[in-house]
Amino acid sequence: MEDESGRLARLRRILERREERAETTASEPWRTRVDGESPTLPMTETVPLIRTDFGDDATWAAVRDAVLAPHPQGGGEYFRAEVEPVEDRRFAGLTAAELVARVPADPDCPEEPAATLLVVADATTMTSAEHHLLLVSVDVADHDTVRRLRATPRAVQQVENNLTTANMGWEEFAEAADDDGVVRLM
């Protein structure tokens, strides 16, 4: 059985190791921390809307157009999802984790990813009745935790606008998802 001074010494060692890890992690570029792969997603000014399923061009066009369409918000205002379509066959079939691993580092802050939100048009998007898209969030503050949820094309605008302006948090949308895990207009 450890005495009080033994427990304190053990706690100090644990804290020192955590601080060392935090210092090392903070100085490493984002792409190295993820998995060492060179990033391949393009740098975008807005949130990337990544196509990973190339089986149906007509469905992709309809989904893309629905996400990009202006949506009335009341009072005569219209909002759009601030997304940029990325249509590159190199991303065909990639999972959320594989896409996150390909997010480039922020050029102004290399220990941060250039994008912390991805919108993905995957096989489920193309085959589901509502064409719900996969939303992937990377929480850098929480040890690069990758979170996923689905949203209908119209709801993407609401989620993206509120997340990127920090008007609402990820948890609020996760809680607002219906029983099937899909966020629809709130």
Rank of each mutant, 00 (worst) to 15 (best):
E2Q: 03
E87R: 15
H71S: 02
M186S: 12
E84R: 00
D139T: 15
G6C: 05
V100K: 14
A166M: 11
P42I: 03
E111D: 08
D35C: 10
G36H: 02
G76L: 05
R33L: 08
R102Y: 03
R147T: 12
E28L: 14
D65T: 11
T125N: 01
L68Q: 07
S137Q: 06
F91S: 10
E37M: 04
L117V: 14
F173W: 12
A129V: 07
D88A: 13
E160V: 00
Q73G: 05
G181Q: 02
R10D: 11
V67D: 05
E20P: 02
E4K: 10
E171M: 11
D180G: 10
V159F: 12
E87Y: 09
E37F: 03
W30K: 14
V140I: 09
T165H: 15
V100H: 13
V83N: 06
E23L: 10
L185V: 06
S38E: 13
T24S: 07
H131Y: 07
A115R: 14
A129L: 11
E77M: 08
E4D: 09
A101P: 07
A105G: 10
L149P: 02
V182R: 08
S38A: 12
L68E: 06
M1V: 06
V119M: 11
D106F: 15
E28I: 04
R150N: 04
E175G: 08
F54D: 01
G76R: 08
T95K: 07
G75N: 09
A101L: 07
P42E: 06
P85L: 06
W60D: 08
R7N: 01
V34Q: 14
M186Y: 15
E130Q: 14
G6N: 02
I50R: 07
T59V: 12
E175K: 13
V100R: 15
A22V: 06
N161I: 00
R12E: 11
G93W: 15
A61C: 05
P72V: 05
D56P: 03
A101I: 02
L134P: 04
A9T: 10
E171D: 13
V67F: 02
T32H: 15
E171F: 10
E87A: 15
L133M: 11
A101H: 14
P107S: 04
V103N: 05
V63D: 05
E23S: 05
D88Q: 14
D179M: 06
F173N: 05
L118W: 01
V138S: 10
G181F: 01
S5C: 01
V47W: 00
E2Y: 02
S128Q: 11
R10F: 05
V146E: 13
G169I: 03
